[in-house]
Design a protein around this nucleic acid. Structure first.
Lengths: 338, 338
DNA sequence: TGACCTGCTGAAAAGCTTTTCAAGGAAAGG
DNA sequence: CCTTTCCTTGAAAAGCTTTTCAGCAGGTCA
């Protein structure tokens, strides 16, 4: 019973004109006799004709689609990246096609293969697991590509990411500026570049202030709330400090819970700085001082850059983003009652 | 300099066989002489040939793509829906193509038009603004469609949504069960169906317990944190109650802040129940008792249903979801110290 | 040895739209 | 009134892959 979709030929027959004329009416490429145009419109409406994008694209018309690959969307972070990207693309008349990589190499590879087959005009890859080699192969095949949060030396000009070292130092300097000298760090999984860089920034800031490095103040977590709680529990058991820099907001939230469970107060007894400025940081108690990861605007800039690449322009290299700190209620001077 | 992409004909020429043979090697449809197959593989690799999905799809091969339209992805909620949908689709061998509607009718209409032109195999529409009439037109044109969180009577069998009345009653009954009798409600924007239904559930539960309806205990918010804080401030000024049911977690978080600012404690002085079970509810202090909106699994079921529609099956109607309550630390019996 | 089957291969058609080319008619100008 | 030009239109080709059909070679069976 599956009636097949009407084609431009059916419309032409119904309107008593040639397919070329129908095409012209629909695309407005050439003037067409008003009466015929009207007949075409009527026929289109009556038959429910929708031009076949495949046939059109087959003509070599550049697709107006851009592929976007993100690891996941279950938490807010990547959703905000995608929002920025989509905004930029839409502005330029492109549509986003978004796929999830789930942090698995094979899944990501499949998604990218689909994009390539679909002849997308360009690609945005957000911090994915596909090996550098494959990404470079894509780039060499003249696919416009922009990377978010990933370093591949050859593509550095087309990668936008946050300056993690600077950011880690920024958070730590804030605590140092308040007068803290014993500052712990709840790190992310140290097999992740970002986590290592934030740790490096933490060390950098301490060194600037002439404070000796003490690895017993660094506790590795896994970017999860539970990991943060657990790392902080270990910290409270084994070390002596008045402030903590946590490598993301989730862990900071877990750390706050651990501090409370230990019968201490934030920030009175222990100040804490998070990282990301996700919704979480507004809802913890006390509200979290954190590093603002300007993730939506980074997505936006990635999209703008990509549009230029697609247009054949040679845009200036994408910058390393230096974020700012958002002060809320989880930090104060040591010993100060607040 | 833009070298055009190699076609199957180029590969055939390079391998010294016909295009048909190349197609057969690549798709494995028919046995091919091993030596020739090898030559084809070599040629494909050397030329970097990628089959053109448009040409393939033009043959009427059903596309393996499904269009998904969501309002936005900037907060966690829709991200989780999408995660569930994508999971289900991938399971069935389909790829998700996701677009954002931004709650605007024209944007949504454009996205849907793109999906239709791309000949997606089906559509999942999440709570969108396109008028019923247009959705019905799509359905009549034999597009498999599943709706999430939206009621269109003619498509009720293909719509999955939460039972808001039941849910509102569930939250309220929990408070009643603890012994509360003066229970306030911080409602969502009452021009939204969901908000009105939750309010209805609240009234229903009170009636069950023989408690007279008192409209002075209902305060309209706007689903935002700030709206919740403000509604709760008004509530504390004007009414007398020992518990609150807030129509979502964001407003509940705002309400908790307002309670704290008023010098009261949660749950000792005022118990509070939220709605959604988003990450927020784990991070507030005290952690929020809330209605678990099983949003990922709903997305998953929507996808499964759609896959059946695409396969031409006639799946059983999608259910109205009755969620369960997640008890955390924001509720206790009135007067009880906790 | 001849008829028949099997396995592999190439030619050609189908699928739908856009665009180029050529032609027809009408209008304008001499 | 004839020629030139412009406007509109239809025919046909291009774009790329899959699939059907027919053919060919080699082997099998009687």
């Amino acid at each position: 019973m599956e009636r097949t979709k009407p084609t431009i030929i059916d419309v032409a027959r119904a309107a008593g004109v040639s397919p070329s004329t129908v095409s012209r009416v629909l695309n407005g490429t050439t003037a067409v006799d008003a009466a015929k145009a009207e007949r075409v419109h009527v026929a289109v409406a009556r038959l429910g004709y929708v031009p076949n994008a495949f046939a059109r694209s087959l003509l070599g018309h550049a697709g107006r689609w851009v592929g976007v690959l993100v690891p996941q969307l279950a938490d807010e972070f990547y959703g905000r990246v995608v929002t920025g990207i989509e905004d930029g693309l839409k502005q330029g008349g492109f549509q986003m096609v978004c796929s999830l990589g789930h942090g698995e190499r094979s899944t990501e590879a499949e998604a990218i293969a689909m994009f390539v087959e679909a002849r997308v005009a360009g690609l945005v890859l957000v911090s994915d697991h596909v090996p550098d080699r494959d990404v470079l192969a894509l780039a060499r095949a003249r696919h416009p590509i922009v990377l978010v949060n990933r370093v591949i030396p050859e593509l550095a000009a087309h990668a936008i990411r946050i300056d993690n070292v600077y950011s880690g130092a920024l958070a730590t300097r804030h605590l140092l500026g308040l007068g803290h000298t014993r500052i712990a760090h709840v790190a992310g999984s140290l097999n992740r570049t970002g986590a290592r860089e934030r740790l490096e920034g933490y060390h950098l800031a301490l060194r600037e202030h002439g404070i000796a490095r003490d690895d017993r103040l660094v506790f590795e977590g896994d970017f999860s709330e539970e990991g943060g709680r657990e790392a902080m529990t270990r910290a409270l058991d084994s070390a002596d400090f008045t402030a903590v820099f946590a490598a993301n907001d989730r862990m900071a939230a877990g750390a706050i819970a651990a501090i409370r469970e230990a019968g201490l107060r934030t920030p009175d007894d222990i100040s804490i700085v998070g990282f990301d400025n996700t919704a979480i940081s507004r809802f913890t108690y006390p509200a979290l001082t954190t590093v603002d990861y300007p993730v939506t605007s980074m997505g936006r800039r990635a999209a703008d850059h990509l549009l230029q690449l697609i247009a054949g322009a040679d845009p200036p290299p994408l910058p390393l983003i230096q974020p700012r700190l958002v002060e809320r209620d989880s930090t104060c001077a040591p010993g100060e009652m607040r």
